[in-house]
């Protein structure tokens, strides 16, 4: 936990180099640069069309951001342990579909919307936790590496979504859409809930013992075990957390689409991982800040929406994202020194 960034260092205790300004001390170098990049993108797209910073458009971007950030947060935890979770997108899609069946039946029975959505949320969470557990079992007991284990659940969850739905969306829940669209100013309530979850995850990653173990395992799993940490149990819980957040993403999809669409999570692990990488989290584990991931996800969202607002050919969208990743990776390489990230 770093030290320089989170705590006003005790004046007597250390003579660190002259404090480099408040903003810089709040953000590590990489995050400062990401913020600059984000500001530049916003400025550019706004200059192309000022509607880009209208409250309606900000709300749209926050909705898109909400679909991405929970998976990216889970992925951040996983990657900090030195692992990877390829199954987040498929989990979101599958959870949304399973919950949609239940919600459709409840709606058909004229259950109140609040009950329907609560049940849906619980089911999404449960499906996500279940897939996270399967990932952990494949890793801890079948001894598969995370890449392979989560690739298997990716395939299985994708396949099951299709088999269950026959490829078509399930349900037509206009009330859910309206709830998801409700907002105060530019801030949709749904995004507000998502942001609260993200904040809790931030605090736990950077200020709690749970987060400390997460970093320790990624930094040196042997040292973590030798220090008495139950590495298996902790790793299991991290994949379960990732699954949970992916499952909840399924609910976000459902709310915004008014249906459980089997395609909604297809390929969604890629932007989630991209957000983490852009955010400067090390794929080797042990290092990174959730703030970076949040900035990474914001950049991806801004690019996706901005290209449409600026009426740039959609063919450039993939290229733009690839460029973001490339720049972020080089930023890491150019960084003079990796300060304490934990």
């Amino acid at each position: 936990m770093s030290s320089v960034t989170d705590k006003p260092a005790k004046p007597a205790s250390t003579a660190v180099a002259a404090s480099p300004g408040r903003l810089r001390s709040l953000l590590t170098n990489q995050q400062f640069l990401l913020l600059v990049a984000l500001a530049a993108l916003v400025a550019y797209f706004t200059s192309r069309d000022s509607v880009f910073i209208s409250s309606g458009e900000v709300a749209t971007m926050l909705a898109t951001f909400s679909e991405l950030i929970l998976m990216a947060v889970g992925e951040t935890y996983v990657i900090i342990t030195g692992g990877i979770d390829l199954s987040v997108g498929a989990t979101a899609g599958f959870a949304g579909v399973v919950a949609a069946f239940a919600m459709r039946d409840l709606l058909a029975g004229h259950s109140p919307e609040a009950l329907v959505l609560t049940v849906g949320t619980v089911i999404c969470a449960a499906v996500g936790v279940g897939i996270g557990l399967v990932n952990a079992i494949l890793m801890n007991w079948a001894r598969l590496v995370p890449f392979v284990a989560t690739l298997i659940t990716l395939g299985a969850a994708t396949g099951m979504s299709l088999v269950l739905t026959g490829g078509a969306p399930i349900g037509a829940d206009a009330a859910a859409i309206n709830l998801a669209a409700a907002r105060i100013g530019p801030l949709p309530y749904l995004a507000l809930i998502v942001l609260v979850i993200v904040a809790v995850c931030w605090v736990y990653l950077h200020l709690s013992r749970y987060g400390r173990y997460t970093f320790a395992i990624g930094s040196n799993a042997f040292a973590a075990r030798a220090a008495g940490i139950n590495v298996r149990r902790h790793t299991t819980s991290v994949y379960v957390l990732s699954g949970l957040l992916a499952g909840l993403t399924g609910m976000v999809f459902y709310m915004q689409l008014g249906s459980g669409a089997p395609s909604s999570g297809n390929g969604a692990e890629l932007p989630a991982i991209a957000a983490v990488v852009i955010g400067g989290v090390s794929l080797f584990g042990g290092m990174g800040r959730l703030t970076g991931t949040i900035l990474g996800a914001l950049i991806l969202t801004v690019v996706q929406s901005g290209l449409i607002i600026a009426n740039v050919s959609p063919n450039y969208s993939q290229v733009a994202i690839a460029i973001c990743i490339a720049i972020a990776a080089s930023l890491q390489a150019l960084r003079p020194q990796n300060r304490s990230q934990t």
Binding site: L151, T158, G159, E269, S282, L283, F284, I325, A333, N338
Partner: peptide
């Protein structure tokens, strides 16, 4: 760090590429 982080850059791209191939393979 310079070494490891630049390797990271390449590896991250590789991971993304392999991941997408893997999706197809799995399906």
């Amino acid at each position: 760090h310079r070494l490891t982080t630049s390797r990271l850059g390449r590896r991250s791209v590789a991971v993304l590429a392999v991941a997408s191939v893997g999706v197809l393979a799995a399906c």
